[in-house]
Each structure stands twice: as C-alpha cells, then as structure tokens.
C-alpha cells in the first residue's frame, strides 16, 4: 500500500501517465498520484440550496485520512471507485460491489460503511478513514498487528475490510465479552478462505491494546 507522508504536488499537474504505470515506474506513493490525477485548482463549492450537478464530472473535495483531496468526478462514481481509481487508495477492495461482502469497508464519521454502496459526491464534508490511514508499516494499528499474530488472513483480499470493520466496532464497543459479540460486530464481512477463527481471536486481542490507548 502506500506511504502516509504525502508530498505536495502542484495543483495544475495533469495526469500524463497511467496510474499503475506511474507507480511501477516511479515508485512514488499515493499522495503524489492522487493529487496529480485529481488536482482541480478551484473546486466550486457543492450543494447550495436546490442546485443540481452532473451528470458530467463535477469538482468537489473529500476528506480522507485527515487530508483534503480535490476530485472531479461524475455523480455516479462510488466512494470505492473514487478511492481506487482516482486517489490510488487501493486498500479497500472491490469484490461484490453490492454491499454484501465487506471487502470495501471504510470508516465514515466513525462508522463502518461499504464504500461501494455510497456515492463519492455524497461523502462531501464527511471524515473518511481507509486502511491506509490507520497505523504505519513501522507502527501498525493494534488491529492490524493482531490480524498478523493470529494468522487472521489467508489470501488477504478481505483483510483490509475486516480490519476497518474491526476498528470501527472496537471504537464503539471497547469491551467485547466473547467471540459471539465479535461475530455480531463483524457480521458485515465475509472471508471465503474461512479465516474466521483467527479473526475472532485477533479482534478480542486487539480490544486489549485499543483499550490501552493504542488506536491511531
């Protein structure tokens, strides 16, 4: 995934290369590319009164992992597609794209939400947190660490969604009493490798660390 130290990029930069090519060739992190692709100098404020925007691309901004990202997107673009295709935040995964698997889970205003089931334009003014915004490779979030310790992933495709759902759950329920509590809290995520045994243990373990205040 990406570095959290995002270099400032001149706002007028136009995307000259493909997203993947850029990453592979230059090896820069998320921020540079996100800014490059989406830098729209003066994003007009949205949503005054009964104003209608679209169906063409509309400039607006999203607050993701504590940073403001200016984007220009059609209203039909989901938050998930905006994250993955325009902002190069590819941690949230596109699997069912219908709100039934949980792989795209992000946290919006402190609550777990399926990024595939909300429109990006609809998330203006909200605080969005993705897997890239919690912990760092050197200092991972306690939930991430616990997933590693308990082998709570196999192919790993569902893992970012599970970690975000677990964080959102623990933020509101710091004292899960049992694996059954955890199951209820994480009922919106599926793992086709069947790593649920590890996930339950990881979340109960992480709860201890989160209570101790390690909750980036």
């Amino acid at each position: 995934m990406s570095s959290r130290k995002e270099p400032e990029v001149p706002k007028k930069t136009k995307p000259a290369v493909s997203r993947r090519g850029f990453i592979q060739g230059v090896g820069l992190g998320t921020g540079a590319l996100g800014g490059a692709l989406t830098g729209t100098a003066e994003a007009a404020p949205q949503s005054a009164g009964g104003a209608v925007s679209g169906p063409g691309a509309v400039p607006f901004s999203l607050r993701i992992n504590g940073k403001t990202h200016n984007v220009t997107l059609e209203p039909r673009v989901t938050l998930l597609d905006a994250l993955r295709d325009s902002l190069d935040l590819t941690g949230a995964k596109r699997v069912c794209d219908r709100g039934t698997c949980g792989a795209c889970t992000v946290i919006v205003d402190g609550r777990a939400v399926y990024a595939c089931s909300v429109l990006a334009i609809d998330m203006q003014g909200r605080q969005i947190q993705t897997i890239e915004g919690i912990g760092t490779p050197d200092k991972p979030h306690p939930v991430t660490s616990a997933f590693v310790e308990h082998d709570a992933q196999q192919c790993g495709y569902c893992t970012p969604g599970f970690v975000m759902a677990a964080k959102a759950y623990l933020d509101r329920n710091p004292n899960p009493r049992s694996e059954a509590d955890v199951e209820a809290g994480l009922g919106g995520n599926l793992c086709r490798c069947g790593t649920y045994v590890g996930v339950r243990k990881a979340v109960l373990d992480a709860a201890r660390d989160v209570r101790r205040g390690r909750n980036a």
């Binding site: 949503s47 009964g50 925007s53 679209g54 059609e74 209203p75």
Partner: peptide, 19 residues
Amino acid sequence: MHAFEYANPTTLKDALALL
C-alpha cells in the same frame, strides 16, 4: 450504472421541488 444528475438540498421544500 447510467450517468445521472445529483442534488444535495438541505431543506425538505428544496428536495420536493427537485422531484
């Protein structure tokens, strides 16, 4: 998904006028 317009009213009156 076909493209569509989007409106973000903050009052019920505005919302109803957009339907």
